[in-house]
Structure formats: structure tokens, C-alpha cells
Design a protein around this nucleic acid. Structure first.
Lengths: 336, 336
DNA sequence: CTGAAAGCGCTAACAG
DNA sequence: CTGTTAGCGCTTTCAG
């Protein structure tokens, strides 16, 4: 019988089966930006965890645009995925997600904390990780630490952050990391100078430009903390091209690890996220919901890890003794 | 009526529709390795082209493993995708793909040329691009050019390549690029020394190790051509750590561009692939097939582009005259 | 031109 | 325990 089936080129139509059972053994994954290595890595965690439980994963990419996300959710919904892992777009309405879970299709958020929807969420403890990173900079002796971030909405970064701080926890990973920066500064009794905090659209060139501007300050910062991959690339580029001696005169700490971090000179120190685990954990949570877990929504915070390499060193001393080292020796000075 | 529908939380069940029409307005994309920026980029091209024609894309990842690919194809098949773009695993049986297209679900191959299945294929003209790259190295004056590649099957690289050369066109991108290397050497009347050609499993550390070995040769090569992203990272690392002065004494040309290529010192010269176009072109071909194009299978070759940066310079001259430039001036030489 | 009915390929429930 | 039947929610066709 089965031989005949194979001979005739039979192929199961899982659509028909799904129509009657209402289940597809498939979960959806919507990445915020599939070109970001973070999501590619997280995806692996999702796929591995899902397959282990006998589920397939179908993937979509929102590109950070709410209408793409809505389209993806609609498609997945119509195709009757049994659950959804999503790195949601924070801006804009998200009733498309609420509707899904209302209808019994569990949703878990990854990487980004969507307030106002009762869904499990798993992400890196961004404020804590950022605070730890900036504390590390402070421990190394830095006092003027600049912040380079991208895509924080609003005109005034500091004002935006103050607003966000009153409404914890949550917000975008970028905002959370900025908050961590502020918190480390405050804990150390250091002032949060708005001139040292810059926000740019998420392109390498724009970040490089604002970093350059930062370096032109007098006195310039002695360290830069960049809150994501693009910000780090742009900042690295700017430091490398600047007249300052990087890393001796200016340190850099990035958020998110990358393959090239150990290829550049100096090797980049970073705060690494457990991307794979984030994906796997989110999926395990989803699987639990799909098999009937009715506990209240959970917020799962995984820890970032500080990876010390060579781009962070103590700042040059500002004592007169040290000054001599860079200034020409007195005997050679030309008098005016 | 529609208001009531929305009120009751109605959601279309596209499964039911697909059951009767047999069409899903969805195409599948199976990446070979979604963590490879090349595929992430190509995916964008696929998605854009598909959406333009009103199709959704569902994505899967084979991880280069045939059984994963088979599973993905089975799922897509059962879910009745209307077409499939795939970067296929070359080894192992591929009747799962043949069966699909036999049944009227068009398949187009991306990046990798699968002989033995009558499907459209779109990829970079790897042998030509590699040949152009190595010719560029030769034009710069290099004569001892090493080849660093990964994951070519078989024990003896040169033998494997000779075998592949008799059976053109096709094979894996790696093999094609090696063939391009050989072809450039031959055209210039340069010998193809098997000692200068190394193959490693696709990990950064292994590549770094074989590159180091290459650098230990006497005389060492004056240039290295690496055939993919991982090979390039490993080779770059090895060159940087070697006692040779990189790039003055040893040049590096990589295949595949990357964001970090302009961040490292020296900036990496590469052959860039039109990844986005590859994806978009493949999808346009697929769309044409889906709307009834019955022309014989096409092989579409897009061109790679040489991007000159700083990692390729002329080799140090071996003539006595040039030697003087690096040797201490005669008057200062200590006679012994 | 509008409305009812057939049926896509399965699964689950139920009768023999 | 095996075999038959109802029906999932749509689209398409055909009759009114």
C-alpha cells in the first residue's frame, strides 16, 4: 500500500490535517533584523529548542517596521502557527499580538520588552549589563565617559531617558542600556553630562560623525560606551581615525560581541549577550504555554557577560608628572 | 457585516482556501547557513522580490546538513509552498528537490549549482571572479600566491580540483573559486604548487593554523587568496600574528565583503558578491516559472566585484637594488 | 447577478 | 478492532 503511495508520488497535505485539528506543529519566529548577527544566533536557539519538541519553525523578518510585522503576524495567523516568538517593534499599535494570544496562540517576546501586552518576555538584563560595563570603566579610572547610542526616539536624549526611568522596567534595549549607563554614573557620584551623551540614526556613518564630535570636546572623554553593534562599529571607526591614541588616550567598550572583535587592533572589549540561550529560553517558555501553562506572564532576564580584551585601558593620568611625557621636554621648547 | 466579523475576532483561515485552490501565495527559502551574512543579505533580495509580486516568504535553514534540508523541504511541501528558492547541500541525494519540481512546484537554486536536477540556478561566477582576483594579485607583482580554502571534500586538494576541472561547470563555490585561482596561475605561466594550496575544516582556528604553516614555508608566499568569509578571518588573524609585516611583506585578498573589512588595519581588499541581487534574481526566475515559463533550465551567472583596499600591495622586491631600501645603508653596516 | 451546494484531503468520532 | 462518515472553512461552480 505504502509502496503504491510512494510510486504515485503521494505527498501528505498537512493543510488538511491542520484544518481539522486546528494545530500545525509549527511556531513562528519574527526577527527584528535578520541581518543582525544577534538574531541569526538567537534563531538557532529557537530552531533547536523547537525541533527538540517536534515543532517546525517558520521565520519572518520585520525589519523594525510595524507594518512588516503586522503583515508577518497576519500570515502566520492565517497559516495557523501554534505559537509565536517575536522581537517586537516597540512603536505603533500592537493589538495584532494581543489578538493572537487572546485567541489561544501564545506569544513570547524576545529581546524587547513590550509593555501593555500580557506575554512572557525573555531578554538580556540590559540595564544591569550596561551598568556593569560602565562600572568597569569607572573602576579602570575613567571619569569622563561618553555614551553613543542609536535610534532613541525624541529630540532630547537625557529628557527621554528621564521619562523612561520613571516608567521601568522595559523600553527598548537601547534605552535600557542608556539607563544602565546613567545608573552607573550616579552610583559613582559622577555627573551625567548631556554633552557626553549622543544619539544617532542607526547608520555607521552617522555614528562615526557624532563620535568625532564627542572627541572634539575639551576636555575630550577618556572612554566611550556604545550600546549596540552599529554604534560600536561607527565609534570604533571614529576612534581609529581620530588624532587621539586609541586605546591609550581613549577607551571603547561595546555592547554585543562579534567575530571581528578579536580581529581588530586593539581587540574590542564588549558586553556579550547570550543570544542562543535567549532564543532557546523563549522557545521553551512558548512550548510550556502551548501545553497549557497558565501562570501569570513572566519576565525572564538573562545576564550579559563582560568580555575584557584590549580596547579598555586606564585613562592617561592628568597629573602634571604625566603631562610631561607628552609635552616636549622643556629644554627643547622654542620660546616665543 | 464586516464590522461584526471584526468584532467577533474573525480571522481568515488561509489553510482552507489553499486546500481548494492548491495555492498558498507563499514561497519557501532555504538558506545554507543563515548566520552567514551572505545569506541574510540574499534573503532580503528574495523577500523584496517576492512581496512585490504579492507572495510571502517562509524561511528555513539547512545548516549545510542534508537531513535538515530534507526536513525543511518536506515541511514546505506539505504546507504547499508555490515555489522554492534554495541554497542546496551539494552532497547526498537530492531527489527531494527533483520530486518537488516534478510535481509542479518550481525550484531555483541559489549560490550553489546542483548538477543533475533540471532547475534554474543563479550564482556568482565564482571561477571568473576568483580568477580576476588572482590576476589582480599577479598584476601587482605577486608570484608565490597561496590559496586558503575550506571544506573541499577529499584528501588531496589538487587532485580534487583536477577532477572537478574535468567536469565543469558547477561544483561548490569553494571548488569553483579554487579553480579560478588555478586558472589565473596557468594563464600567467605560474606553477601551481600543491604546497601553497591548503584546505581546512570551516573553523577560524583551523584556518589560522594552516595559514601559519603556509607562512613558515621558505620562501614564504607573498600573497594569500582566501575563498570565503571564515577562511578570510582565519587568514587575517594568522597574518596579523605572524612575524611578517602585513601587508608589506604579505598581501591578503578575501572572497566576500564584510562590514569589518574597513575597520581592520590594513583594510581588507575583497571580491564582493552581489548577494542581494542574487536573491532577487533567483526569486524573479522562480516567479516566472510559477507563472508558466517553460523554457529550458537557465544558469544565471552574476559578476563578483573586486574591491581594492589596503591589504594587497606589491610584494617586496627581491632584486638587490630594492634590497638596499630595507637593509641598513652601507656606510652604517657593521663589518663582521 | 445572487445564492446554494459540492468538495479540497484529511482526522476523529462512531458504528459495525 | 476495523471501516465508514461527518465536517474543518473556504472557493468555485452551477442553478435559480
Amino acid at each position: 500500500v505504502e509502496a503504491a503511495a510512494k510510486r504515485l508520488g503521494y505527498r501528505r497535505n498537512s493543510l488538511a490535517g491542520s484544518m481539522v485539528t486546528g494545530r500545525t506543529q509549527t511556531i513562528g519566529f519574527i526577527a527584528y533584523d535578520i541581518e543582525d548577527p544577534f538574531f541569526a544566533r538567537a534563531l538557532r536557539g529557537v530552531v533547536d529548542a523547537a525541533r527538540q519538541a517536534g515543532f517546525e519553525v517558520v521565520i519572518a523578518n520585520s525589519d523594525g517596521r510595524i507594518e512588516m510585522e503586522q503583515a508577518a503576524v497576519r500570515v502566520f495567523d492565517e497559516k495557523r502557527v501554534d505559537g509565536l516568538v517575536i522581537a517586537p517593534v516597540l512603536e505603533g499599535p500592537h493589538d495584532h499580538l494581543a489578538r493572537l494570544s487572546t485567541r489561544g496562540v501564545p506569544v513570547v517576546c524576545l529581546d524587547r520588552d513590550l509593555r501593555g501586552i500580557a506575554a512572557d518576555t525573555v531578554l538580556t538584563d540590559n540595564v544591569r549589563a550596561a551598568r556593569a560595563g560602565v562600572e568597569y570603566l569607572i573602576r579602570k579610572g575613567h571619569r569622563r565617559i561618553a555614551l553613543v547610542t542609536t535610534d532613541v526616539p525624541g529630540e532630547d536624549l537625557l529628557a527621554e531617558l528621564s521619562r523612561a526611568a520613571l516608567d521601568p522596567p522595559g523600553e527598548s534595549p537601547m534605552v535600557a542600556r542608556c539607563l544602565g549607563y546613567l545608573s552607573a554614573l550616579r552610583a559613582a557620584g559622577l555627573p551625567a553630562a548631556s554633552s557626553l551623551m549622543r544619539n544617532a540614526p542607526e547608520t555607521r556613518a552617522e555614528v562615526a560623525a557624532i563620535t568625532e564630535a564627542l572627541l572634539g570636546l575639551v576636555p575630550p572623554p577618556t572612554a566611550v560606551f556604545s550600546t549596540n553593534d552599529v554604534a560600536t562599529i561607527g565609534a570604533y571607526e571614529a576612534l581609529q581615525c581620530s588624532s587621539l591614541d586609541f586605546p591609550r588616550e581613549i577607551s571603547l567598550l561595546g555592547f554585543d560581541d562579534a567575530e571581528w572583535a578579536t580581529l581588530v587592533q586593539p581587540k574590542l572589549s564588549v558586553i556579550a549577550q547570550p543570544a542562543y540561550d535567549l532564543g532557546a529560553t523563549a522557545t521553551r517558555r512558548l512550548l510550556a504555554r502551548m501545553s497549557g501553562d497558565l501562570a501569570p506572564p513572566q519576565l525572564l532576564l538573562l545576564e550579559g557577560k563582560l568580555v575584557e580584551r584590549d580596547s579598555v585601558v586606564p585613562p592617561p593620568s592628568e597629573s602634571p608628572g604625566a603631562e610631561k611625557l607628552t609635552a616636549p621636554a622643556p629644554g627643547l621648547r622654542i620660546r616665543g
